[in-house]
Amino acid sequence: MSIDTILKNLATFIRERLPQTSERLLRSVQEHSSGYASIPPAELRPALERSVTTICTLFGDNDNGPISEWAPQIGKRRAEMGLSLDDMMVVVTKIREFCWQELTEFGSDRLAIGDVRRFEDAISEFSRLLLLGYSQAMIALQQELRDQAEQIAAQQQTIRELSTPILPLYEGILILPLVGAIDSFRASQIMERLLTAIAERQADIVILDITGVPVIDTAVANYLLQTARAAQLIGAQVILVGIGAEIAQTIVQLGVELHGIQIGANLQAGIELALRQQGYAIR
Rank of each mutant, 00 (worst) to 15 (best):
Q237M: 08
I182Y: 03
V252E: 10
L195A: 11
N62C: 07
F13D: 05
A71H: 06
N266I: 07
T227A: 13
R128K: 14
A203R: 06
W100S: 06
L195R: 11
G133V: 05
A137T: 06
T104R: 14
L132S: 13
T196Y: 11
N222C: 00
R118E: 02
Q249L: 13
Q189K: 14
P46W: 10
P165I: 01
Q202Y: 05
A11C: 05
V213R: 01
Q73N: 09
Y170N: 05
A187I: 01
I247D: 04
L178T: 06
T164G: 02
E23S: 11
P19H: 09
S68C: 04
V116Q: 10
L18G: 00
V252G: 07
L233S: 09
M89V: 13
I239A: 10
G65F: 01
I271K: 12
F185W: 03
R110K: 14
G75S: 08
Q237N: 11
A153P: 05
R146H: 09
T54I: 08
Q226L: 12
F106N: 04
Y170P: 00
A199T: 15
R15H: 02
E102Y: 06
L145Y: 04
Q249I: 10
I14V: 15
E102K: 12
G264Q: 12
T5R: 14
R186N: 05
I113M: 10
P46D: 06
P41T: 08
E200D: 13
D61H: 00
L48T: 08
A281I: 09
E246V: 06
R160I: 12
E97C: 02
S108E: 12
R186V: 03
A122N: 08
S127D: 10
N62Y: 01
T53G: 01
Y280R: 15
R96N: 09
A265F: 07
A265I: 10
A199K: 13
G107P: 04
S68K: 01
N62G: 03
W100A: 05
D209K: 08
D204T: 10
Q232Y: 06
E144W: 00
T54S: 06
L162C: 03
V52N: 07
G35M: 08
T227V: 09
L240K: 11
E80M: 14
R78L: 09
A245V: 10
I14R: 00
G244Y: 07
I6P: 00
E31V: 02
M191Q: 13
D4Y: 07
R160A: 14
R78E: 12
G133F: 01
L233W: 04
L162I: 11
N62V: 00
S127Q: 09
F106H: 05
A203S: 15
D63T: 00
L141Y: 02
E125G: 04
V241Q: 09
E80P: 04
I251F: 03
D183N: 09
Q277I: 03
R77H: 07
